[in-house]
Computed example of a mutant assay.
Amino acid sequence: MIEFHKVTKSFQQASTPIKDLSFSIKQGEFVYLVGPSGSGKTSLFKLLTREWLATSGTIRVGNYRLERMRANQLYLLRRKIGIINQSDLFLPNRTVYENLAYCLSALEIPRNEQDYRIKEVLVDVGMEDYQKYYPHEVSVGQSKKIAIARAVITKPPIIIADEPTANLDTKSAVEMMRLFYRINQRDTTMIVSMHDSTMVNTVRNRVIELKNGQIVRDAQEGGYSEFSDPKDVYVW
């Protein structure tokens, strides 16, 4: 369960990115965040991961009240959340296998289990033949699959993805959304910010629309906008 209750984030020298935001997300839901640039989507993610501390209001992730967590406890929260950013940042001098192993080593996962998990997750995203490749040797679409593998390899109950289709062609975007759908079927909560109206209209799920840091629409199986073009879909 994720719950925001009257959450506001403000800065002295800048506009308020989040204003009096309230919503809840059940475990296993798939939710799109939509809205124009500057509407608060990335800000919401920063609050959810406690990169930012809310100015007021309460945020709950599972049993954690984020405003009450000390700095030395934040690793417990972040182990519950897999993150897929707009830009896929990897250790450039390490192979795909070594980048994934690095994540598991940080959690002190035994070496024999690391090997099993890495191979399992690379098969899952269709990148099992690229273990020995370096990040600069794979395409943008392949890089995104590796980023997905990295996000799920620790088996977190929540995945957040910030504009994951931004730099992908249509074929790669559709493949990525199929992966997200499979991950969600394992009772993993998916929260995906998205500018791709066609994708949102094709793969219907809950839509939370933000504008100026506030929710203006919360629709089950919604489209990208309130009055979406029925022709604005992919051939799935």
Score class of each variant (00 low, 15 high):
209 E>M: 14
182 R>S: 07
201 N>L: 09
99 N>M: 01
158 I>C: 01
184 N>G: 00
210 L>Q: 00
100 L>D: 08
7 V>A: 04
65 R>L: 12
20 D>R: 13
160 I>H: 03
177 M>N: 10
94 R>V: 11
74 L>Q: 13
172 S>G: 06
82 G>P: 07
231 K>A: 12
149 A>K: 05
47 L>I: 07
63 N>C: 00
1 M>V: 12
75 Y>E: 09
101 A>M: 09
144 K>H: 12
172 S>L: 12
112 N>P: 02
144 K>L: 08
234 Y>R: 01
141 G>R: 00
150 R>H: 03
225 S>P: 10
92 P>W: 01
128 E>T: 07
213 G>F: 04
180 F>S: 06
187 D>Q: 14
115 D>V: 13
4 F>G: 04
39 S>V: 04
95 T>V: 08
66 L>N: 02
55 T>P: 06
138 V>Q: 01
45 F>P: 01
166 A>T: 11
8 T>V: 05
17 P>R: 00
166 A>L: 11
13 Q>V: 10
66 L>E: 03
109 I>F: 00
228 S>I: 12
85 N>S: 11
138 V>I: 15
230 P>H: 07
108 E>L: 12
204 R>H: 13
166 A>P: 14
148 I>S: 01
182 R>D: 12
96 V>C: 03
35 G>A: 03
27 Q>F: 08
184 N>L: 01
15 S>F: 10
58 T>Q: 11
158 I>N: 02
3 E>I: 03
144 K>D: 07
137 E>Y: 07
40 G>K: 05
152 V>C: 00
122 L>V: 04
148 I>L: 13
145 K>P: 01
88 D>F: 09
136 H>W: 15
160 I>T: 05
119 K>W: 02
94 R>E: 14
138 V>W: 06
173 A>W: 03
90 F>L: 00
211 K>M: 15
80 K>S: 12
152 V>A: 05
59 I>K: 02
